[in-house]
Design a protein around this nucleic acid. Structure first.
Lengths: 148, 148
DNA sequence: CTATATAGTCAAGCTGCTTGACCATCATGT
DNA sequence: ACATGATGGTCAAGCAGCTTGACTATATAG
């Protein structure tokens, strides 16, 4: 494969990723969560299972723990998460989703499903399902942050 | 497809996109262009064909023309581009790549080719080639900026 | 020839991140 | 038991990269 082809493929992949991020975000906003940005969604995916510490969150997002702490401050202020004492470690605090946080997480899943469904209409659902498996093999632990 | 599957697929796609961005950037740095960030690469892809105005670049990157102008200032200072008078419009200035800018563009293509080749080793080259076609159908004009 | 639109720049301000310093608590070794 | 270092978290200050607003010069339309 020529270098220029690889570049075109890369550009197409990044365009799809950008489009996906944007559409999920629009879907979340349309469902009534206008005071969030995509980064909050990435945070929610880490917090959802059973909560996480600020340090966990920082590692997940690829930022300093100070930055993660500021993000948590903001989400607390907006009512999406709570800080609770950590059951095993008195230094740490467990950040967990509130009911509003869960509602937003469900909204994001619905929005993502809408986008993926549109892909299925274009390419066939089986095809799209195959993607998921192959993508996971390529970069199972890629950075959550496709930033500049 | 369940919502949670769609979310997992989305996460995998974003992880691959992040991984790709990071690896291309590392490849560019390893080839001797350490004073650039991924955004400069996105700018180069717009400038490469035959140059572009600051306003064109701003639209391509999804930022204000002031921000694009600052980016051009920086790239001029670092020797990657030049501002030339625009042949048809005395208000405008054509931003074009210098020889160093072209060298960096080639380095980015090599790096991208390296990543795509690794995908081919995992999945088969034909499979990867099919991706390119399908990705281009899904979001042919997605934003170049998969930002938060 | 006037009026409006467009290309570009200058200046100021804001947001989200970083670095650095610090305290409280945990874990380890003696 | 207790000293020592590691870890979780916060406070404070600074900065990079972007935005909005204002302005000039040139182009374009009527």
């Amino acid at each position: 494969m020529q270098n220029s082809e690889a570049m075109a493929l890369s550009a197409a992949l990044l365009a799809v990723a950008g489009d996906l991020t944007q559409r999920i975000h629009e879907g979340v906003v349309a469902r009534g969560f206008a005071d969030l940005r995509p980064v909050h969604g990435f945070a929610f995916t880490r917090l959802a299972p059973g909560g996480a510490t600020v340090t966990d969150l920082a590692a997940h997002l690829g930022v300093t723990k100070q930055a993660a702490s500021q993000l948590v401050d903001e989400m607390v202020r907006k009512g999406y998460v709570e800080r609770r004492p950590h059951p095993q470690d008195a230094r740490a605090r467990l950040v967990v989703l509130t009911e509003r946080g869960w509602a937003c997480t469900r909204a994001a899943e619905e929005a993502a499903a809408g986008v993926v469904r549109a892909w299925g209409d274009l390419l066939g659902e089986g095809e799209v399902r195959l993607w998921g498996e192959r993508l996971a093999r390529i970069a199972p632990h890629g950075p959550i942050r496709p930033a500049w």
